[in-house]
C-alpha cells in the first residue's frame, strides 16, 4: 500500500517560504511526476515526503497514518538520488543489501532478495564489484536495486536519469516504467524532462514557486491546461502564446495554439508571415514564422517534408477547435 496525502504542508528555509501551504493526494500504485522550472521546490517537496526535511507546518499521511514526525527510515519509502549516493566502499551486493542489514533481516533472506533484485535489474554479473567500477547506467540500476529490496510503500526518484546520456536515458526510462507496471508500487518522480513526464506519468503535478498549478493526466494537461503557465510549460516545442489585438479579436487576453494546430498555406489564411529558421526532423518539420502583429515568431509543425525556404511568404491559420483562450489573469476561458 502506498497512499500519500499532503495536508497544508508548508516549508520555509529561514525567512524564505519555499513551499506555501499545499494539498496533494497520491493514490496507491500511481506514477506521479513532479515538473516545474528549476528552483520551484520539486526536490524540497520530495524530501519533505521522504522525511529528509522537516515540514514547517501541515501534515503528511502515508496510508492514513500521520507520518509527519516519523523519521525517514520508518516511513517505508525508498529514494533514488540524482547522484545515486551509492556507498563507495561496499560492493554492489553489500550496497543493495544495506537497507536489509539495517532492518536486521536474516542473511538467507537478504541474499534471496538481493538475487531477485539483481535478476530484475540485470546486475547479477556485477554483484561483487564496487560502484566505482560500474558505468553510469549500472550505478543507476544499483541505486534502484537498493530501493526495491526493501519492498517500500512508495519509491521516490529525484531526477534519477539526468546524469545519463541520451540513449541510456531512453532505456532506463522504459525500465523504470516496466518496473512500475510489474511492482504496481506508488512512484513519485521528479524530472525536468518533458518526455519523461509525458510518457511515464499517470499523473503530472506542475509546480511553480512551490504552488501546484495543475494536477492531471498527461493528456489532460496537454489538452486543457488550466492557465497560461501550464500551457507554456507542458508540450515540446512549446505552445505558441499570442496576446494583443489578435487575442482580443478572440475575446481573450492571451490565446494559445500548439504548433501542430496551425494550418499552412501559400495562398490564403488568417495571418501572413515570413518563414525563418526551419528544423527538419525527418518525420516532422518545425518552421519558425514571423507574423505581422505578433511579437514572437510562431512555431508551426508540418508533417513530413515541405518545401518552404527561408524568407518565403506563408499564410497561417489556427485551428479554431484547438485554440486555447486565457483571460487577463492567465486563467483558461471555458
Amino acid at each position: 500500500m502506498g497512499r500519500i496525502t499532503l495536508d497544508k504542508v508548508r516549508k520555509s528555509f529561514g525567512e524564505v517560504e519555499v513551499i506555501p501551504p499545499l494539498d496533494l493526494t497520491i493514490e496507491d500504485g500511481e506514477f506521479v511526476v513532479f515538473v516545474g522550472p528549476s528552483g520551484c521546490g520539486k526536490s524540497t517537496l520530495l524530501r519533505l515526503i521522504a522525511g529528509l526535511e522537516d515540514v514547517s507546518g501541515g501534515e503528511i499521511r502515508i496510508d492514513g497514518q500521520d507520518a509527519t514526525m516519523v523519521p525517514p527510515a520508518k516511513r517505508g519509502l525508498a529514494m533514488v538520488f540524482q547522484s545515486y549516493a551509492l556507498y563507495p566502499h561496499m560492493s554492489v551486493r553489500k550496497n543493495i543489501a544495506f537497507p536489509l542489514r539495517m532492518a536486521k533481516m536474516d542473511a538467507a533472506e537478504q541474499e534471496r532478495r538481493v538475487k531477485a533484485a539483481a535478476d530484475v535489474l540485470n546486475l547479477t554479473d556485477y554483484l561483487d564489484r564496487r560502484p566505482g567500477q560500474l558505468s553510469g547506467g549500472q550505478r543507476q540500476r544499483v541505486a534502484i536495486g537498493r530501493a526495491i529490496v526493501r519492498e517500500p510503500a512508495a519509491f521516490l526518484f529525484d531526477e534519477p536519469l539526468s546524469n545519463l546520456d541520451a540513449a541510456l536515458r531512453v532505456g532506463m526510462r522504459l525500465e523504470i516504467s516496466e518496473l512500475h507496471k510489474r511492482l504496481k508500487t506508488t512512484m513519485i518522480y521528479v524530472t525536468h524532462d518533458q518526455v519523461e513526464a509525458m510518457t511515464m506519468a499517470d499523473k503530472i503535478v506542475v509546480l511553480r514557486a512551490g504552488h501546484i498549478e495543475q494536477v492531471g493526466s498527461p493528456l489532460e494537461l496537454y489538452r486543457n491546461p488550466r492557465n497560461v503557465f501550464v500551457a507554456g510549460f507542458i508540450g515540446s516545442p512549446k505552445m505558441n502564446l499570442v496576446d494583443g489585438p489578435i487575442a482580443a479579436s478572440h475575446d481573450a487576453a492571451t490565446i494559445g495554439i500548439r504548433p501542430e494546430h496551425i494550418r499552412v498555406s501559400d495562398e490564403a489564411g488568417d495571418w501572413l508571415g515570413k518563414v525563418g529558421v526551419s528544423e527538419h526532423l525527418g518525420s516532422d518539420t518545425f518552421f519558425h514564422v514571423t507574423c505581422e502583429g505578433i511579437s514572437e515568431p510562431l512555431t508551426v509543425r508540418v508533417g513530413g517534408e515541405v518545401d518552404l525556404r527561408y524568407g518565403d511568404k506563408v499564410w497561417l491559420s489556427p485551428d479554431p477547435d484547438h485554440l486555447h483562450r486565457f483571460d487577463d489573469k492567465g486563467l483558461r476561458i471555458a
Partner: peptide, 24 residues
C-alpha cells in the same frame, strides 16, 4: 546525499557512523 541515503535505508546515527561514514 550518501548520508541521506543511509538514513532512508534505515541506518540510525550509530550505524551511519559505523558502516558509512567511518569506512569512507
Amino acid at each position: 546525499e550518501i548520508l541521506e541515503a543511509a538514513r532512508m535505508d534505515g541506518a540510525g546515527l550509530k550505524e551511519e557512523l559505523l558502516y558509512v561514514l567511518t569506512p569512507m
